[in-house]
Design a protein around this nucleic acid. Sequence first.
DNA 1: TCTGGGGTCCTAGGACCC
DNA 2: TCTGGGGTCCTAGGACCC
Length: 439
Amino acid sequence: MFGLVDGNNFYVSCERVFQPRLDGRPVVVLSNNDGNVVSRSAEAKQLGIAMGAPFFEVRELLRHHQGHALSSNYPLYGDMSRRVMARLADHVPAVEVYSIDEAFLDLAGLTTWCGPLDARAQELRRDVLACTSIPTCVGIGPTKTLAKVANRLAKKYPELQGLLSLTTESRRERALRALPAADVWGIGRQYAQLLQGSGIRTAWELAGVSEAWARKHLGGVVGWRLVQELRGQPCQGLLPSEDGTLGRKSISCSRSFGQRLHHVEELWGAVSTYLSRAAEKLRAQGDQAHLVTVFLSQDRYDTRIRPPYTRSATLTLPGGPTADTLRLLAYGRRLLEKLYEPGRVYVKAGVVLDGLEPPSSGQQLDLFAPPDLLTEPVSVERSARLMQQLDALNRRFGRGAVRLASTVSLAGQPPPWQGKSNYRSPAFTTRLEDLLLVT
DNA sequence: TCTGGGGTCCTAGGACCC
DNA sequence: TCTGGGGTCCTAGGACCC
């Protein structure tokens, strides 16, 4: 049996823990650059504010109802997430951290009695709320997909008190009949439209399609698995997360700029900043990368630019995998110069590190690569030490305390690529200076 | 005027290997 | 005229998730 726990309106709930004045009001949290709504309180949902709505479209409505909009504060949400996950781990044999606000639970061994399982789930919800102030909902089912179904319904119907378990055949049928097919985990916009066109309205009807139909129309084996899971046939197991973190297969960093950029040197400021950040994450995960990708985008809302313009370039590192910011920057610079076209107006850039693996004992050198000081064995060791020192200093004195010159703008000037974050709350739990004072 | 970021998995074709 | 089978790696694209 699987459980799925998720934090209600997670980002808003995190903000409310430290700002009680937000209680009972419409509250939204905005994406980077204060662009879109990414989390909404119940009151904000009530006003009809949609997930993903552009902020400028709802600003007036929110003001009119004495609501609040907050810039996103990821250090706070990340830290609250760790606290929640730590509580969960105390209640069940294994936890899979699925996202910042969601976790699958292994309920094996707790399934002997139907009633007590529900009681245990309620106990877990109470404990998380008491220790972190984050309200949650729990769904329980024999497959991950059914646990998601149950969680969805538990959120939708308050009379369920935040919990639904699909432990019997009749409950499964009732739940699937109550859920629109479009709300099933794995059915997005495209598939939802296709299902509608085929007359499939509920999750129950979706569970009844043939294997051939599922494979043909729902992305091959992925769709067939989805259907089987709805029927109660598990196709995915739990992937327990050690230490409550996720070992990722790729690491990226991208941002929309606060203003439009034209010049390659400005773009390099942004790209080198993102690449430095990605390299930090890479080292924190204890991996090296084989591939670097850089991409640049023009304004996708500008109707004169059709189709939308994004160009990317990828390089397989000729000197073998690395986690060295200096080497990554050297390659990133080449990629940027390959992509950059004078005359274009850029609004966004990003980098992706791929092909991740832990450092091997022996470095594979490229026999035919031109001599490169940075890939000499002796340099490899020195670079590792340099990166360790860099990371240690930044941990101690705060991110960006020591960084590469290319990522720094002119003295006193905010960098031209920096986005907006006009409504940011303090980092209550991760910066000493931001600690909440009670007087 | 203002429109996000970071991930996953799968497919398919071509190059290349033994 | 006949012309294998089984792999990997790479790239690009498309769907999905939170």
